[in-house]
């Protein structure tokens, strides 16, 4: 198998033993593959962010195990910080973590913590900046002078510069304009392919999921509701709606068409897929 990160029977409880006790994850098992982009969707409070924080050992599981390359990441708790270089986590609104004097220095913070030489750090900074679409002219500016979207990209570059085998992004496109979304999410495929890395993308947007992901994990009230390829997940619109989620807009259009006697077939969750399906239908109809 091509899987790199696997979690088994993972549970996490907040504030155990206080009146605020809350089960955030309940016996979750799921695995992530190399070179693939996996989407993680779920209603607010379904446990997505908790799961993400468990993946790189920021939280310690209440029970269950996280395996990276077949090894339990908590096998040696003192070495847990090394795991974080391998599982790169981009938190929600990562622009708040910027602190250094220049963009260059800020992106280089991770690699420098890895203990690399200055030359290597510089090489990684340039590489990560290119991946995330940061122009060379920005590298010597202060991160606080940049626009929101640029800051976001610098923060993502700061993680990519560590060249993690697993790149986890928690809502990387939240609050960005459509162009910013496209640029940031588009670069993820590039990263997954070139590094043969596993990318995990947490998002609320069904359109983004359908467009950028290979596999999807659907979470619902602290549990995994369903896993599968994008096709499998989005063909079950009722299931998604029943857990408070939605299907991409275009899927609904396709569904309405089908219910009115226009039987479409194919990838009915992206605009292009539906377009092709309609064209096919029209051609066949003419014949």
């Amino acid at each position: 198998m091509n899987e790199i990160l696997k979690i088994e029977n993972l549970s996490y409880v907040y504030g155990k033993g206080t009146p605020f006790e809350k089960v955030a994850l309940d016996n979750v098992s799921v695995s992530f593959e190399k070179g693939k982009i996996t989407g993680l969707i779920g209603h607010t409070g379904s446990g997505k962010s908790t799961l993400v924080n468990l993946l790189n050992g920021l939280y310690k599981p209440t029970s269950g195990t996280v395996y990276l390359d077949g090894k339990d990441i908590w096998e040696n708790p003192k070495e847990i910080s090394k795991i974080r270089f391998k599982v790169g986590l981009v938190m929600q609104y990562p622009e708040y973590q910027l602190f250094d004097e220049t963009v260059r220095a800020d992106i280089g913070f991770g690699p420098r913590n890895l203990g690399l030489s200055e030359a290597e750090v510089e090489e990684r900074v340039l590489e990560a900046a290119r991946f995330s679409g940061i122009g060379d002219d920005l590298l010597d500016k202060s991160p606080f002078e940049l626009s929101g979207g640029q800051k976001r990209r610098v923060a993502i570059a700061g993680i990519i510069a560590m060249r993690p085998d697993v790149l986890v992004l928690d809502e990387p496109a939240a609050g960005l304009d459509p162009r910013g979304r496209r640029e940031i999410l588009g670069s993820l495929r590039d990263y997954a392919n070139r590094m043969n890395a596993s990318v995990i993308l947490v998002s609320h947007s069904m359109e983004d999921m359908a467009h950028y992901c290979d596999n999807v994990v659907v979470m619902n009230s602290a549990k995994v509701y369903r896993t599968g390829t994008v096709n499998e997940i989005f063909s079950d619109a009722e299931g998604l709606i029943s857990v408070g989620l939605d299907v991409p807009m275009i899927s609904r259009v396709a569904k309405e068409l089908t219910s009115r006697g226009i039987a479409l077939e194919g990838e009915l969750y992206t605009v292009n897929g539906v377009k092709d399906a309609i064209l096919r239908y029209v051609k066949e109809g003419k014949r």
């Binding site: 920021l58 910080s81 270089f85 790169g88 708040y96 913070f109 991770g110 890895l114």
Partner: peptide, 16 residues
């Protein structure tokens, strides 16, 4: 909460 969040973010970048 904010402190914890930023701490986690920097830990994710290998801060000790």
């Amino acid at each position: 909460e904010e402190t914890e969040k930023i701490m986690n973010a920097q830990k994710s970048r290998g801060a000790d």
